[in-house]
Design a protein around this nucleic acid. Structure first.
Length: 421
DNA sequence: ATAGCCTTGAAA
DNA sequence: TTTCAAGGCTAT
């Protein structure tokens, strides 16, 4: 009755949309694309596209353009190295653990979706329901792959996580960790979540991996995320402070002339910086860090307008994603514990914190989103952009500082001074 | 050349 | 012993 077809096999082939027959060369594909990929690699076939290399590849048209079909195979993550050079039959390859991992992830997702549908309480802590929120996802480098099959890492098309810094713990692979007490059953029983099953039974069933993270009251927030929330500054208070500061400075402007945009932004930045420093100073883990100052190479960055535009785009993206406080607090810790900061001595701690935050964030997205993998990747992409932006902004401020254009003697300029020391 | 079914064999 | 992802075979 239950079989291998229970886990993820009802999905569609990410290459052509045909029925999936199992894991082939790195991910779940149909039998025909498996054979096509094998023939192509084994026989070292070279195809050409008679069109613009953008042919549609679906079940009906997959035979039309082998070039585009093979490109799509590579794009969704099929692995060239899984085709054996010696043509040895049988046995298992080195991807076994990844297939297992992928199955586990899919099981979680399935359990999540079913349990979410069954939730009698429709008042979650986030604004909209998880499914509604998922509809807002428009980003992601390979949406098709994310929706239909989890691509394992591939040389031709790296995982989205590799967009992060090279030192990031995400780089090596999708290092998702699931609870050690979770038994991965290949004969996973769907019936536990049938409509006749009482929710109380679902949530206390020890075989249910989901029950550990989900209760009828809403998602169970991982302990570490709760700790992060505890460290969070009072946002309302910060806003009030910024407004007060601007009003205070406005008194001076009125008697002289209109404030420059840059000057105004520096005032806001200064106040926010105070808040960030205070947040970092009082946060868990941060006190354990030791810092060694050394020469900082700097150069003038691109124009402020471009930076502001990128910043606005990022804010827009965060709005679309409806990033909640829990997720945002995790992102902040990712940034605070940046493995790229060479002056930090304790790289072990950085790595450890990064891994802990990664795990906590994944656990959290597992409980809040049915498209958790896609959401997790989207959050990481925002983080990557945030890092990139902050580096550029720092360069820009350094440039302004050096050319004596910093408008006020504030914390911001003091920090720039310290960096050059 | 394609794609559905068969055989194989190391790992679980 | 069972599983399942490799390669192989063959009708189309």
């Amino acid at each position: 009755m239950e079989s291998r077809h229970d886990v993820g096999f009802e999905e569609l082939c990410p290459v052509c949309g045909d029925k999936v027959s199992g894991y082939h060369y790195g991910l779940l594909t149909c039998e025909s694309c498996k054979g096509f990929f094998k023939r192509t690699v084994q026989n070292d076939k070279k195809y050409t596209c008679v069109n613009n290399q953008q042919c549609r590849v679906d079940k009906a048209q997959r035979r039309r353009c082998p070039f585009c079909r093979f490109q799509k195979c590579l794009h969704v993550g099929m692995r060239l190295e899984a085709v054996r050079a010696d043509r040895m039959r049988g046995g298992r390859n080195k991807f076994g653990h990844m297939y297992k991992h992928d199955r586990a992830i899919k099981q979680w997702g399935k359990a999540l979706i079913q349990a979410t549908r069954l939730r009698p309480d429709s008042s979650p802590i986030w604004d909209s329901s998880p499914d509604q929120r998922d509809l807002a996802f428009t980003g992601g480098p390979h949406p098709t792959a994310n929706l239909h099959s989890t691509p394992l890492t591939t040389a031709k098309s790296p995982p989205p996580s590799s967009l992060l810094s090279s030192n990031s713990p995400f780089v090596s692979q999708y290092q998702f960790t699931y609870p050690s007490d979770l038994t991965i059953k290949s004969e996973y029983n769907n019936n536990w979540a049938s409509s006749t099953c009482p929710i109380a039974t679902i949530c206390t069933d020890s075989y249910d991996p989901y029950s550990r993270y989900f209760s009828v009251q809403g998602p169970r927030i991982p302990q570490l995320v709760l700790e992060f929330l505890h460290c969070d500054p009072d946002e309302l208070q910060l806003r009030r402070k910024i407004i007060a500061r601007l009003q205070q400075e406005q008194t001076g402007w009125e008697t002289h002339r209109d404030p420059e945009t840059f000057s105004l932004m520096c005032t806001i930045a200064d106040q926010m910086l105070c808040s960030i420093v205070e947040w970092a100073r009082t946060s868990i883990f941060f006190r354990q860090l030791k810092v060694e100052l050394s020469d900082i190479v700097f150069h003038a960055g691109p124009a402020l307008a471009s930076l502001t535009q990128r910043g606005q785009k990022l804010v827009e993206k965060l709005h679309i994603l409806k990033v909640d406080r829990q997720e945002f607090s995790c992102i902040k810790f990712f940034i605070l514990f940046n493995p790229d900061v060479k002056e930090l001595e304790d790289h072990g701690l950085i790595k450890s914190v990064q891994e802990q935050v990664e795990r906590a964030l994944l656990e959290y997205t597992l409980t809040t989103s049915s498209q958790y993998l896609s959401r997790f990747v989207d959050l990481l992409l925002c983080l990557s952009e945030l890092r990139s932006l902050s580096t550029l902004m720092e360069d820009y401020l350094n440039f302004k500082h050096l050319s004596g254009e910093m408008p006020c003697n504030n914390l911001l300029s003091e920090m720039l001074h310290a960096k050059q020391a």
